[in-house]
Design a protein around this nucleic acid. Structure first.
Lengths: 118, 118
DNA sequence: AAACGTTATATGTGGTTACAAATAACGATA
DNA sequence: TATCGTTATTTGTAACCACATATAACGTTT
């Protein structure tokens, strides 16, 4: 028995930004293209593209600066706002993970698990 | 833009216990029957029953002591383990909500939101 | 035996989501 | 103009939920 959780940002009960987008944006920043980022986590490119596209429309600003064509086919880089959102979310998530871990230890102790399984 | 999250207990990637069950068990404890608890939160009785039934099978122990029939039709009360799990989860959730709120204030500041919307 | 409100159970359905596959469009370079 | 790997877009499908409906079973009280 183990604690798990999901964290995301929303507006008017609509999911806006969470783990998936944060991870993809991080990889785009690192690899320079959305298709490479998608491949890195075994997500189909079309899925990744649609995810970002929907997200940008909901947010009202661009996350990626996209270049189509060119000798290397093109690529994507993060906008200032995209990077800001991604970086902030990752920092927040890191600290949240740490806090949740503490609370898990505090409440779901071995003693409790033993009582439940006895 | 606002933070939201979900917390639950799992075993081998299978959801075990979360908000829904905790809320239902709390209401059963208060009201004395599963059907009343379900009605209280506008959930159909069958859905509530199936939720609890699945959960008990996954957990391997009973959450409710059920009485069928009788002048009042019957009712349900929490088992010791059911109450222990429910109470612990609610206490944990309360503290987690408080911690997440702190982190939200720390990271998703008005300044950040302004930058994103400018 | 009849009534009552509960627990027990099976079945169906609409909506959402995750995901894949396939194709078009693009534009710098050679 | 041909090539290349990228971005852009459409379409379809399988799986999973949440949820409702309907009915049976139960046992104490009257």
């Amino acid at each position: 028995m183990k604690l798990n959780y999901k964290l995301w940002l929303e507006e008017e009960n609509e999911k806006l930004f969470g783990d998936g987008p944060a991870d993809i944006l991080y990889l785009v920043d690192k690899l320079g293209s959305l298709s490479k980022a998608a491949a890195e986590i075994n997500m189909s490119y079309s899925q990744a593209w649609q995810l970002i596209d929907k997200l940008e429309k909901k947010l009202g600003f661009k996350l990626l600066e996209k270049q189509v064509g060119g000798s290397d086919g093109g690529g994507s880089t993060l906008t200032t706002k995209g990077r800001l959102l991604m970086v902030t979310f990752l920092k927040f998530r890191k600290e949240a993970v740490s806090e949740m871990s503490k609370l898990e230890k505090k409440y779901f102790t071995d003693d409790l698990i033993n009582k439940l399984n006895s």
